[in-house]
Write a protein that binds this DNA or RNA. Structure first.
Length: 325
DNA sequence: TCCGAATCACCCTGGACAAA
DNA sequence: TTTGTCCAGGGTGATTCGGA
């Protein structure tokens, strides 16, 4: 009930400009004290309502706020639009109602924001059917807002993006990409882009810095983001220089391994409580690095070159300490 | 007639308390 | 928890009034 009244209060102020607490109380059929509390609640919630004292005084919304019918800013409206993805509508059986609501939200946006918001919906994909890594959900470190904000702006504006990106096991480097869209899969965010015409997928949590460039990105006029995502997922799991590694693992380190591996192909539990997993890594270097991090908690079973490589490393380290300590 | 101070009316602010 | 009532305090604009 109170939420309804707060909305009514904002709409009254929007439609009729400055109104005294007594007038608002009459309109809303509550006491002036209640109106004052509601005004306080609105202010606390960030609604730019201010008081003008004295004769002919009253409450008023900031003029800029009045231009937006719903009081939603661009990002808020966009969030609602994206949240209303077709899967959500299917799941909840609210397809037509959702479509109508989305139209209203679009309609409520200022003229100059409508086109970008509608376009932006085609550039965001929430929880597609295919999980790129085919593995359990892991909670990523949150990306700093300014970085993700910069990426989002470039994606929506169709501008090129300069990223400082740290691939697994590698130093972060700067690269310029043409963004296509953003995808979230179980709380993990990805940027779909092309670099020099080749498809690239970047995990947002590995982006250290981003700069929107003042150049238009090369991007298809229309793109089915979900389809593009599925194609890349398939390619990602099966192609490239990826290497498959079989290893025995201390269960306590499973999460760490899963966080760095591309995909878990198989998993079984041995009698002694240790896990045997078959996982894929981006390349040889990635596999070596990941296994080395796990130290004695992981025992590589295959391929042979990896076992040999880790033995060589361990021997070199052993020699180093024997000589210098 | 003009100007400045005093007064009035209207309104917001905030706290306390009680009732639903 | 929400709402209504009461109260004291303070800000602002309009009006009134007296002196120059």
């Amino acid at each position: 009930m109170r939420a309804d009244r707060l909305v009514s209060l904002v709409l009254l102020l929007r439609q009729r400009g400055r109104l005294s607490a007594a007038t608002l109380a009459r309109e809303l059929e509550v006491s002036t004290r209640t109106v004052l509390r509601d005004i306080e609640a609105l202010s606390a919630a960030g609604i730019p309502v201010y008081a003008e004292r004295g004769r002919y005084g009253g409450f008023e919304l900031l003029p800029g706020f009045q231009t937006e019918l719903t009081g939603l800013n661009h990002d808020e409206a966009l969030a609602l639009l994206v949240a209303g993805s077709r899967r959500g509508a299917q799941v909840f059986g609210l397809g037509s109602a959702l479509a109508s609501a989305m139209l209203k939200i679009l309609d409520a946006l200022p003229e100059e924001q409508r086109a970008t918001a509608a376009g932006a919906v085609q550039r965001l994909l929430i929880d597609p059917e295919t999980d790129l890594l085919s593995r359990r959900q892991v909670v990523e470190e949150e990306l700093p807002d300014p970085v993700v904000g910069e990426i989002r702006r470039a994606v929506f504006a169709g501008h090129r993006l300069r990223l400082r990106y740290a691939a697994v096991g590698q130093e972060a480097t700067w690269r310029t990409v043409d963004p296509i869209g953003l995808v979230t899969v179980r709380q993990q965010g990805y940027l779909l882009a092309t670099k020099a015409g080749e498809d690239r997928t970047y995990r947002l949590s590995r982006v250290q810095a981003a700069e929107e460039l003042d150049e238009l990105a090369e991007r298809p006029e229309r793109i089915d983001l979900e389809r593009a995502w599925q194609e890349r997922s398939t390619r990602f799991r099966t192609g490239g220089d990826q290497v498959a590694v079989k290893l025995r693992l201390n269960p306590a380190r499973r999460e760490q391994l899963v966080r760095t591996a591309l995909a878990v192909l198989s998993e079984s539990l041995e009698d002694d409580g240790r896990l045997v997993l078959e996982v894929t890594f981006q390349d040889k270097r990635h596999a070596e690095w990941a296994l080395w991090q796990l130290a004695t908690d992981a025992q590589p079973l295959a391929p042979a070159w990896l076992i040999h490589s880790l033995q060589t490393r361990a021997t070199a380290l052993d020699n180093h300490y024997n000589q210098h300590l």
